[in-house]
Amino acid sequence: MVVLPVRFERSPRLHPMLSEVAHAVDTRVVVQGKRGPEVATVRGEAAGPDPQARYGSVLRAATADDLTHWDALHRQGEDLKWLLRARARERGLPVKIVAVEFTLDESLVTVSYSADERIELGGLISELRAHTRARVNFAAVGPREQAQMIGTLGACGRENCSSNHLQEFAPVSIRMARDQQLPLNPEKLSGPCGRLLCCLQYEHTQYLDLLADLPRKNARVCHTESGACGKVVKLNPLAGTVDVHTEGGMLTGVPAAQLTRAPEQAGGKSKRAEP
Rank of each mutant, 00 (worst) to 15 (best):
E9T: 13
M17W: 07
V21H: 14
V25M: 10
V29L: 10
V31C: 10
K34D: 15
G44M: 06
A47N: 03
A47H: 07
P49V: 10
T63L: 01
T63F: 00
D71C: 00
H74W: 09
H74R: 13
R75T: 07
R75V: 08
Q76L: 13
L84A: 04
R89N: 12
R91V: 02
E101M: 04
S107Y: 06
V109M: 03
T110R: 05
Y113P: 08
D116E: 14
S126A: 15
A130G: 00
T132S: 15
N137Y: 09
Q146L: 11
M149G: 05
G154L: 04
A155H: 12
N164W: 11
L166A: 05
Q167H: 03
E168S: 15
M176W: 09
Q180S: 04
Q180Y: 03
L184T: 00
K188H: 12
R195S: 06
L196N: 04
L197Y: 00
C198R: 10
C198L: 09
L200M: 12
L208Y: 05
G227W: 12
V233S: 00
L235M: 11
T246Y: 04
T246A: 11
E247W: 05
G248A: 15
L251G: 08
L251V: 08
R261A: 13
K269T: 13
E274T: 03
P275H: 00
